[in-house]
């Protein structure tokens, strides 16, 4: 029996309404494209101590989901449970402390006029993490945890490089001792050689502090390297969830396959031109009828245009929202990866 997930969402939806003039509201019928469903029935759980990656194209709702989880916005409908208990819509100080966020751009997420030490001190005192006399020692401990030295306390964000700023942002998130970290594209603004150090940091935080991390990303090579499980989002829904190696070696949703085939590859031999996704994601104002991926799907049949499939189990711990999941042919890239994996093992 597995432990209860630390965080679970069920049937979460989030709608946004466009501001419209009275005249256009009168002239247009109810179905006019004035409301946007950023999330359209999302079920997901984050298990204790795992890194779960959330991938998808822009506009798929990844960041909206991250915002809802951290309490930055409330869902239109649906449930959000923390350790099996419903999370109140308006979180008190203690509830909001437990789930912390690291943002994409470390240049805009840190206040340029507050020194690192003052920033940490404010949090430590506000949340009464340590008594006043121990604030400095605790701040130094946090900085060391993310690989910075004590002298960073007096410095301002502008004195640091992008990678160092991201470390400070992580230290800030860790200051209030959360047990869940939501990281929204935390390495995509960083250089390649720096990326690796931040990825290592996330892995060590998971290992040493037992943190559960939701890692929002679009770079599948990074995801494959870091996470234990992957959830793929498309147009406001989760379309496939599985353990990382299972997802990449045996993808059971055509969209996941298209994503994998689009990854630029480091070895020339593995360049795949078989399955190129045509078109762009449809507008969330106007979601296609039936399966939302059907207009771009090479495997789509009439049944796909008629029914909107939910997330169904296809193997142990592997769910896909494709009604033809079992019929899909084997995936050639996936096969070549599992072959190299066997060869190196």
């Amino acid at each position: 029996m597995m432990d209860a997930p630390v965080l679970r969402v069920a049937a979460i939806t989030k709608s946004y309404h466009l501001q419209t003039s009275l005249a256009s509201r009168l002239s247009r019928n109810e179905n006019g494209h004035t409301s946007l469903r950023a999330l359209d029935g999302v079920d997901l759980q984050l298990n204790k101590g795992e890194i779960l990656a959330l991938v998808g194209e822009s506009g798929s709702g990844k960041s909206t989901l991250a915002k809802i989880l951290v309490g930055g916005t409330t869902p239109t409908s649906g449930e959000l449970e923390y350790h099996g208990e419903p999370m109140p819509a308006h979180r008190d100080k203690d509830a909001s402390r437990r789930i912390q966020m690291v943002f994409q751009d470390p240049y805009s997420s840190l206040n340029p006029r507050i020194s690192v030490g003052a920033m940490l001190k404010e949090l430590l005192l506000l949340h009464k993490i340590v008594p006043r006399g121990e604030v400095r020692a605790e701040s130094v401990r946090l900085l060391n945890l993310v690989g910075l030295e004590e002298d960073a306390l007096q410095a301002y964000p502008s004195q640091f490089s992008g990678g160092q700023r991201q470390r400070i942002a992580i230290a800030r998130a860790l200051a209030v001792r959360p047990d869940i970290l939501i990281a929204d594209e935390p390495v995509s603004a960083l250089d390649v050689s720096v990326q690796a150090t931040i990825l290592d940091l996330f892995a060590s935080l998971q290992r040493e502090l037992g943190l559960s991390i939701l890692f929002v990303a679009h770079n599948l090579a990074v995801v494959q390297h870091l996470s234990q499980r992957v959830a793929v989002m498309y147009l406001g829904r989760i379309v496939e969830v599985a353990e990382t190696s299972e997802l990449f070696s045996n993808p059971r949703h055509p969209y996941t396959r298209a994503l994998i085939d689009s990854i630029p590859r480091m070895t020339a031999e593995s360049v795949n031109e078989e399955f190129v996704l045509e078109g762009e994601p449809p507008s969330p104002f106007n979601v296609p009828a039936g399966c939302r991926f059907n207009p771009r799907c090479p495997y789509a049949k009439d049944v796909c245009r008629a029914t909107d499939p939910g997330l169904e189990p296809v193997a142990a711990g592997h769910q896909s929202a494709c009604i033809r999941a079992a019929e899909l042919p084997d995936h050639s890239i996936a096969l070549s990866i599992s072959a190299t994996r066997k060869a190196t093992a």
Binding site: Q195, T197, F248, S270, T344
Partner: peptide
């Protein structure tokens, strides 16, 4: 740089 074809390789910053 993470290489999609070599998931087991350690990243060395």
């Amino acid at each position: 740089a993470p290489d999609f074809d070599q998931p087991e390789r350690e990243l060395v910053p």
